[in-house]
Simulated scan of single mutants.
Amino acid sequence: MNISTKAEYPPCASYLREVYTGRDGVRTLHQAKITEMIAHQNFVAFAADFRVNEAYPQAQTHKQESFGFLPTVFEESGWVPRSDPGRTPLWGLWRRAEHSVREITLMYLDLDNAAADRPFVTLDEMETTLKALGLSHILYTSFSHTSERHKVRAILPVSRSLDYDTAFLVFLWFNAMVCGGQLDEAIYDDGDFLYGPPFVGQQRQWLDGSVDVDAVLALVEDLSDESLEPARRRCGAVQSRRELTPTEIAEMRAAMQDDTVRHGEVTITNPAVFNPDWLVDLHALCNAGSHRQTLLTILTRAFVKSEHGLTFGELRHLQNELDAEWGFYCRVKYGDRELAADARSVLTVRSTKPLSSPTYQRQQSVKAALARKRRS
């Protein structure tokens, strides 16, 4: 099995390095503002910059007091705070998914060891395996890393650029073959970012070969049914926005005007409507540590699971039940109007990628492999 190559795609990265002090005196990363974008000549140059500029320079009081980065770049755009949508847009470089080039130039993995029923994977074990595979890498422990539960992020060079769905398929192989199912699957959406190394932690790097993307993709369909399960969930939970058909527009408008709720049926306690595993993601703040974005992600999963059959009232009901798990954090911080807008945005999600796209065809191939394994 050879998944290493000397061919390397030049890494491009957007860096989030503005940390501000809020009214409460707490220092927090500005997660929207891109302070710098760099097209690095190669992974060696990226690694040198990362080591110097991404490690947080002082003791931290919480996870969000950090730097961050994305292995992609963005077009200039206007930004306004969600709390004041009428404000004149501030022009610049902002981490907004709709202005991303939708192409990533590095592979990244987040080892969180969240599966209690699987053996933990240590920093040393991950490093040893990546070296044995001949893959250059940067490894660093995260803010919440402990000796009892290793939490490690890895960055690797790639032979070619990837879209996020392709990166997810590469993740499937690493999750199954390198990390024993202990990787976080919820970090491969457009606009997701990773926190950089904390002030206190370990950093390691090794520079030799790149991930041969196409070699890894050729191995994905041979993974076990269990290893491919995240692909099934993603195919059902991650939908790309596109122009809706007239029928879909009519359905969406009708749903937006429908405040009815099937009480006793549409609830987070009903596994036919809501996957209980999603509560784990909810409490882990699976979308970049953000309560609101995590709530939006999980609400979208429920809507897709229903095959777009939930009303606005039912989405709001589920939203309220989920927010109650946090003591109504989002209602207090963002207000009812903003949460209602989030529920309406979920109603615009429909089926997705053009049938001719390579990503769609690859997803269909993986889904077909899943079906074959279930029949056998």
Rank of each mutant, 00 (worst) to 15 (best):
R372N: 00
S240W: 05
L139V: 11
I298F: 06
T5H: 08
P354Y: 02
G134D: 10
T311V: 08
Y20H: 11
H263L: 11
P89W: 05
V170D: 03
P358D: 03
V152F: 05
D117R: 12
R233L: 13
S351H: 06
R149L: 05
Y195H: 15
E65C: 10
R301A: 14
T35E: 04
A215P: 10
T105H: 14
G264C: 13
G86E: 04
M177Y: 01
S210A: 15
P11N: 02
E148R: 14
S376P: 00
F274K: 15
V200D: 10
A369F: 03
S144N: 12
Y164D: 01
C330V: 07
D208G: 12
N287W: 06
V216M: 07
Q182P: 07
G236F: 01
V152T: 09
K33G: 04
L315R: 12
K367G: 07
R292L: 14
T122L: 08
A48W: 00
K367E: 13
Q64E: 11
P89Y: 00
V266W: 03
Y9H: 13
N53T: 04
F168G: 01
E98L: 01
L370F: 05
K33P: 01
I268H: 04
L162T: 05
L355N: 02
A340E: 04
Q202P: 01
A48Y: 03
G86N: 14
I38E: 07
R95M: 03
F50V: 10
L93A: 02
L133P: 03
S240Y: 11
Q60E: 08
Q319V: 02
S345P: 01
V73E: 02
G78Q: 06
I138D: 07
L156F: 00
A215W: 05
L296G: 15
T5K: 10
P358K: 04
R331H: 13
E321L: 13
F199H: 15
Y140T: 06
D342R: 09
L228C: 06
E54Q: 06
R331N: 10
S4L: 06
C330E: 04
R375E: 08
V304G: 00
Q257L: 14
A186L: 13
M37G: 05
F43L: 07
N175W: 00
E243L: 15
V238I: 09
T260N: 12
L70K: 07
I298P: 08
L183Y: 09
R51W: 09
F74V: 03
A32R: 07
D212H: 15
T166A: 09
V220P: 01
R301M: 10
